[in-house]
């Protein structure tokens, strides 16, 4: 690519492109470029204050039987539902074959606290918030495109592909949970 250059002692102008030193310099330049670019990209990852709000605690005694409370966690709604015994029964006896996304009710609650359901309140279709208690299965109904969820938050009818998501949570005491 470089034209040959006239020099006084006739050598050196056509430096060999394959000289190790040039490859080393080029490699170091690529390394330097990566070192410059990485912090810029990493700065777009969640910042320390966003990560600190990753967990919240909630007092379960605020929920009445048969009702739900909606709280905000990480910018999204979370349903905390206190199920009646009838609702729990309906969820437990539902056959796996009737479920689009088979999952036992027992896998969606914590042992000893099966009356409480903690679910992310976004429809797994396109994200709308389903309405409480509506729909054909007594759970939730999403008005946007007609997804029906049962009393365990599992999808039964409609375009949603999967059950309402159970977030990571744990019981700190009988009446207090930590989400996230």
């Amino acid at each position: 690519m470089a034209e040959s250059v006239e020099t006084e002692n006739g050598e050196g102008g056509d430096a060999s492109r394959r000289d190790f030193i040039h490859i080393a310099a080029g490699a170091a330049a690529v390394g330097a470029g990566a070192m410059l670019v990485w912090p810029l990209i990493n700065s777009m990852n969640p910042a320390a204050d966003t990560l600190a709000l990753a967990s919240i605690e909630f007092d379960m005694s605020k929920v009445q039987e048969g009702q739900q409370v909606v709280i905000k966690w990480q910018g999204k709604p979370v349903f905390v539902r206190y199920r009646t015994p009838r609702e729990i029964q309906e969820a437990v006896v539902a056959p796996m074959s009737a479920l689009k996304d088979p999952q036992a009710d027992g896998d969606r609650i914590k042992a000893g606290h099966q009356q409480y359901l903690v679910l992310l309140g976004n429809c797994t279709h396109l994200g709308c918030i389903p309405t409480f208690g509506a729909g054909d299965f007594g759970g939730w109904f999403c008005p946007c495109h007609g997804s029906h969820y049962d009393t365990s938050g599992r999808i039964r009818k409609g375009p949603a592909p999967t059950n309402l998501v159970v977030p990571e949570y744990a019981y700190l005491s009988d009446t207090r949970i930590k989400i996230g």
Binding site: L40, S43, A47, D49, T50
Partner: peptide
Amino acid sequence: ERIMRDVNGGDLI
């Protein structure tokens, strides 16, 4: 100051 403290690499940038 949030950039300096909380944003990843924010102080350097």
